[in-house]
Design a binder for these strands. Structure first.
Lengths: 341, 341
DNA sequence: ATTATTGAGTTAAACGTTTAAGAAGGTGTT
DNA sequence: AACACCTTCTTAAACGTTTAACTCAATAAT
């Protein structure tokens, strides 16, 4: 029919009203009479004008209905991790309900500059690899909400990781135990950036720190000594890394009889390897996980772990962003007793 | 420092050149002398101008570096499905390498109108639920590439589903067998829209159709009769649906001794249920899958299936879009013989 | 009968860029 | 010396909207 894309101006001329009126017909029904509005919309439909151009709206209105989801690790990894993908699920459905779109943003990139101008806000899931990215998020003119990660003065969604770790560890630990910890990357561990060196950003602390604190408190309560050598720091909650670390732990001597794992993926890998090696769980080896993924419940023996709802986190994160909540939100958790302690 | 966001105009005034020159300094280095360019960029940095506003660029340039990934089913489902998430992996990494961003778009929404104006193109993964959405994609002014789905006159990425199904079925079938098929939603099955009724869109055919054709050809070759009652159409490749259908198949009488499944997820669920029921695989029941996911290889007995690389599909789809390829691309597949036939 | 108030629509100035076309000056050719 | 041709930069018109401020009637209030 029409050679080139119709604009508001074209349509206004054809219908014989001002562009403002057409615009109002689409955006502000209260600004014109009901009859005129309906007539205009009908005409537009007939002419083949499907509504104001979104690119122009983004510029003019300063809003795009796009929310960027900054994923701590690469998108590839995040999409296949059960915890992260469940989070994405929750976030995306909450956003969709509110007419927002989700832009996946890799946390290993080093700047948000290429999207910050048009995006409506950021949900940051986990601790991004790149310091500069964190710094930019901290200084972002657009709203930011963080999850499983904390930036001072920005809203966040989290659970009480210290308390959760303390509780789950308490179920596993007894006086005289020899314990190992399969942890996640600490924010200031050598493999990563020494974020505390930078005075500009005020990152409170990572979940790995909080969980470690909880584990250590539980150990201390029972007079169990945890040396630095008994703590492994995996770069991420990945089966491959987990398998390697599990091997090291199980072949170290003396072999620990309790291993506290900061994720279920890690714990399950350890569990499988232990069973392969003929180690009796929980008699010779107690294991705790973290997250409460389905697979942990299906495993035999079933895993003792901390249950938290990733999808709820996603929903809450989206809500916080949309409602311009400023405060930090601490969600509940629950220790699920399985057969591994 | 600065109260309000700096614009190109502000910066131009401060530095004492025209806006065009600043713009060129950022976008078209060949349009001004090297020395001037460097001076300008240095000044901008000092002033705190981080480059042209992206929202304005989108409008003016008509390009955003955003690619929408239209997911046939809901985002929630897609993100947790191993096949789909592997696809997303491939696509996102290829796009990221080319500086493109990924917008997740739910295929159960009924229009692309709210993004078509600013997005650079669409990758459509699978057959969207909504006819209107398909119609809009078919008529989209922006490039579209489809995967595991076909729209006439649009490029697509696929494997030869008919041949793949034929081959895998051929490994399982023998004269005298009683066969059932656990299939996926056909494009014109009653539960969905009768897409062929609409003359406006020319959707070639769904992968479910092609696979069914392949299965039936293999059956015919061996004089095996497949009645309509022996064919189940699951709405999607979901564990829940699969479990229900598996139950029906295994309790039907006479019980088939060969079941051809259109996805590994379905096949694995059937396998588990068969084992639970004490049915010997493959002696009493042969099973074939489709996709070649990891879990299929790990299963005991391991699954006979068609291997195709979802991540490669993602990469190819992204490439096709970025390179403006117009032709359809048929990728290779491979039958992996497991212990279930 | 005069003044306020409201309703419906218009005008025109943004929003922050990019880019075709043009101007000014310098270099090379004949 | 005249001319064409670069190079480097500027001018100004898009890109397609939204929205504050305004006009003009018509209705309500005093």
């Amino acid at each position: 029919m029409n050679k080139t894309k119709l604009t508001l101006k074209d349509v206004a001329e054809q219908i014989g009203v001002s562009t403002a009126t057409i615009s109002n017909a689409f955006n502000r029904p209260d600004q014109l009479s009901k009859s005129k509005r309906e007539e205009i919309l009908a005409q537009c439909k007939k002419i083949g004008y499907s509504g104001p151009n979104k690119a122009a709206q983004i510029l003019r209105k300063g809003t795009s209905n796009i929310v960027a989801l900054v994923l701590a690790d690469s998108i590839s990894y995040m999409v296949s991790d059960p915890v992260a993908s469940t989070f994405i699920k929750g976030a995306s459905s909450a956003l969709q309900e509110n007419g927002k779109h989700l832009l996946l943003y890799a946390g290993d990139s080093n700047s948000i500059a290429d999207v910050v101008d048009f995006v409506d806000g950021f949900i940051c899931y986990g601790q991004p690899r790149n310091v500069n990215l964190i710094r930019e998020l901290a200084a972002s003119p657009k709203p930011v909400v963080t999850v499983d990660f904390d930036i001072d003065n920005k809203p966040s969604i989290n659970i009480d990781n210290e308390e959760a770790a303390y509780q789950v560890a308490s179920h596993a630990l007894n006086k005289g135990d020899s314990v190992a910890i399969l942890g996640l990357r600490l924010i200031d561990s050598p493999a990563t950036c020494r974020i505390y060196d930078s005075p500009l950003i005020d990152v409170e602390t990572s979940i790995a720190h909080r969980r470690l604190d909880g584990y250590l408190r539980a150990a201390e309560d029972r007079n169990v000594v945890v040396t630095d050598e008994a703590i492994w720091h995996l770069p991420e909650s990945d089966r491959h890394f987990a398998r390697q670390a599990a091997k090291e732990v199980l072949t170290s001597s003396p072999r620990p009889n309790v291993v506290l794992c900061m994720s279920d993926i890690i714990a399950l890998e350890l569990l499988h390897m232990a069973l392969e090696m003929g180690i009796k769980v929980p008699q010779e080896l107690k294991i705790t996980g973290f997250d409460g993924i389905e697979e942990a419940e299906r495993a035999r023996p079933s895993l003792t772990t901390v249950c938290q709802s990733s999808s709820q986190k996603g929903v809450e994160a989206a809500k916080s962003l949309l409602d311009h909540v400023k405060s930090k939100n601490t969600l509940p958790f629950e220790v699920r007793l399985g057969e591994t302690v």
